[in-house]
Amino acid sequence: MNLSQQDWASQLEADPNAVILDVRTEDEFNDGYIPGALNIDIYKGQGFIYEVDQLDKSKNYYVYCKAGARSDQACQVMNQLGFEHTFNLLGGFMNWHGEKALP
C-alpha cells in the first residue's frame, strides 16, 4: 500500500508491530537513513528475495528507497512472498522530513 509521507510517518509511530525497511544500496544507506531501519538492497536480486524471506511475516513493514519506485517494487515482491502488511513511502527518503540518522 502506498502512503503519503505524513500518513506513513504517523502510522509507523502508532504501530507497535512495525519494522522499517530501507531497500537502497549500502552507499545510499550510509549517506543517511530513517532511525531503526533495516537495510536490504533490492538491487541484490535473488539475494534480496532470500534475505527478505527470512523476515517475520507477522510484522508490518514500512518500506522506503530514495524516491519510492524501488520500495514499491519491494512491497510487491514481499506481498508475493506472503507478507500481508507492507507500506511504501511515496516520494522516498529524498522527501523525508522526519528524523534521520548516520551509521
Rank of each mutant, 00 (worst) to 15 (best):
N17E: 10
D31G: 14
I49Y: 00
L89E: 06
S10I: 10
S10P: 04
P103I: 11
S58L: 12
R24I: 01
V19C: 08
Q5T: 15
Q80P: 04
A18K: 02
V23M: 00
P16N: 08
Y43W: 14
D22C: 04
N88M: 09
G92S: 08
T25Q: 00
H97S: 15
H85Y: 14
D53P: 02
Y33T: 07
K59D: 08
N17M: 05
Q11Y: 09
Q76N: 12
W96S: 03
V63T: 12
H97C: 14
D31A: 15
V77Y: 04
S10A: 13
G98N: 05
Q46E: 14
I40N: 00
E13K: 15
V23H: 00
D15S: 05
H85I: 09
V52Y: 03
I34S: 04
L89F: 10
M1N: 14
G47W: 09
L12M: 09
Y33M: 10
A74S: 02
L81F: 07
F29L: 09
V77H: 02
K44V: 01
A67P: 06
R24Y: 03
Y61W: 06
T86M: 08
E99D: 10
V52A: 12
M1D: 12
T25Y: 02
D72C: 13
N30G: 13
S58T: 15
Q5F: 11
D15Q: 05
L21F: 05
P103W: 11
D72K: 15
V52I: 15
G98C: 02
N2P: 08
G92H: 01
Y62Q: 10
V19H: 03
D27K: 15
L3G: 00
N95P: 07
K44A: 07
K44G: 00
M94N: 13
Y33H: 15
V23C: 00
V77D: 00
W8L: 06
V77A: 06
D7G: 05
Q80R: 13
Q6C: 11
V19R: 07
L90T: 12
N79T: 13
D41Q: 07
S71Y: 03
I42W: 02
F87V: 09
E99T: 09
N60C: 11
F87Y: 15
S10D: 13
G92F: 03
L3S: 04
W8S: 02
C65L: 06
L102Y: 15
N88L: 10
R70W: 01
L12N: 06
F48I: 09
P35Y: 00
R24V: 01
D7P: 05
D7F: 04
M78G: 02
D7W: 04
L38Y: 07
Y62P: 06
V77W: 02
G82L: 08
S4D: 10
M78E: 00
E13D: 10
D15E: 06
F87Q: 09
I42K: 01
N95A: 12
A69H: 12
D22L: 04
